[in-house]
């Protein structure tokens, strides 16, 4: 009998892996104009923006300010030039404290 969960997993794998490796194979076939290269160089920063907001508001369902507080604290710790590990622990502790006591 064909297992439906296994089929779903393999199908998901396929549609996730193809977009990942396709660029490696197509890039060599085209000469990219300078403005496209510039565009691609900006993508990490735009992607980070989109990854952070509004997703950070959804850490705790119905309580967007919990994620927001964790994020603001993280930003403050980064500006204090603390190591990224302290930044992460600081925001995790903030979120856990808020969830426990409020």
């Amino acid at each position: 009998m064909i297992d439906s969960i296994l089929l779903i997993i393999l199908g998901m794998s396929l549609v996730t892996m193809i977009p990942r490796f396709l660029p490696v194979w197509i890039v060599e076939r085209f000469i990219m104009p300078a403005w496209v290269k510039l565009w691609l160089s900006y993508i990490p920063y735009a992607a980070l923006g989109a990854l952070i907001f509004p997703g950070i508001l959804t850490i705790e369902g119905g309580e967007p300010w919990i994620g927001l507080s964790g994020g603001i604290l993280a930003a403050c710790l980064v500006l204090l030039r603390l190591n990224i590990l302290f930044v992460i622990f600081g925001s995790v502790i903030t979120v856990i404290l808020f969830k426990t006591f409020l």
């Binding site: 900006y42 735009a46 994620g67 964790g70 930003a75 990224i84 992460i88 925001s91």
Partner: peptide
Amino acid sequence: SIALYALFIGLLIPAVTTSWKLGLLAVMSM
């Protein structure tokens, strides 16, 4: 899961403090 957001923030902020353009891009994208 806040840990991953803290990581993103930790990557983004140092980059945007060196170039306001990159900060503007990130905010527009948000």
